[in-house]
């Protein structure tokens, strides 16, 4: 079920030059799983903008977003106390009722945020959780400390080698000899493709596609899977690795 409602910004601040963290206060009762997303109506923009939920509690939602265009630029300038119209409870989210003892969470850039609440849930289940994070460079690092603070083992890869392993997340996974029996991933398509080739184990992958509505009506965000056409916003955003044909 979805909820359309008004939410008040209680915090909106930069974590890096282009990555922002926004906290919104309001009804979160329709968010049913980690990895779901919200659609935000922005002033003077026709279509809502989708953002994955980084974290949530009984009355607040944390979003982490990157300023990439006019919409997110506008969002970064919104002041505390501003009210926004949101649709919440969108997307299927990650399924944590799976058979795993050593899950590995892999995030690249702005694909990292939805893994945060997921990591919290997995740790709450008593699972030894490792997180592999990929960035371009040291200046773009965010949330490494936050994952450590909730009890995750964290490995980092940067393209320029300024922090952690030089190269991609797969390089960091190899170099640190990370063992896992299941993975969860979100990030740029080349990273997701590399992971599908890297792993023989099953995993859940959160996909990104340009959306119209966010709730399955417009068919704008469809992808082809091994089980036919699926809407990223409705049947996804999370798909099984075995279902995807990347």
């Amino acid at each position: 079920m979805y909820k359309k409602g008004l939410y008040t910004i209680t915090s909106n601040m930069p974590l890096t030059e282009t990555i922002y963290k926004m906290v919104l206060q309001g009804d979160t009762s329709y968010i049913s799983a980690s990895g779901q997303f919200v659609e935000i109506e922005l002033p003077n923009k026709f279509l809502r903008r989708p953002f994955s939920v980084c974290d949530y509690d009984d009355n607040s939602i944390t979003l982490i977003y990157k300023v990439v265009g006019e919409g997110t630029q506008l969002m970064s300038q919104l002041k505390i106390g501003t009210t926004l119209d949101l649709l919440t409870g969108l997307g299927n989210g990650f399924d944590i009722n799976i058979d795993t003892k050593q899950p590995l969470l892999i995030g690249g850039g702005v694909g990292i945020p939805p893994l945060y609440n997921l990591a919290k849930q997995l740790i709450k289940k008593g699972l030894q959780t490792t997180v592999a994070l990929g960035f371009n460079c040291a200046e773009e690092l965010f949330f490494v400390k936050e994952f450590k603070e909730i009890g995750c083992k964290v490995v980092v890869a940067t393209i320029d080698g300024s922090v952690g392993t030089k190269g991609y997340v797969t390089d960091a996974i190899n170099q640190n000899g990370i063992n896992c029996d299941y993975f969860f991933a979100c990030g740029p398509l080349p990273m997701l493709k590399a992971l599908c080739n890297h792993f023989t184990i099953e995993g859940q992958i959160s996909m990104e596609e340009r959306m119209g509505c966010g709730f399955g009506a417009c068919m704008g965000c469809s992808i082809q899977t091994k089980n036919g056409a699926k809407r990223v916003c409705k049947e996804g955003t999370v798909f099984l690795k075995s279902e995807l044909d990347l």
Binding site: K45, L47, R210, M211, G212, C218, M219, C221, S222, I223
Partner: peptide, 30 residues
């Protein structure tokens, strides 16, 4: 939704663009 004889996936993505007071779609009759 516009229905055709055979099932259709439609056009390649991205197939949505935001505009001032409107939007563009090229879903292509999925």
């Amino acid at each position: 939704k516009g229905t055709t004889k055979e099932p259709r996936f439609g056009n390649p993505t991205p197939r949505i663009a935001d505009c001032t007071d409107g939007m563009i779609n090229s879903v292509g009759l999925q």
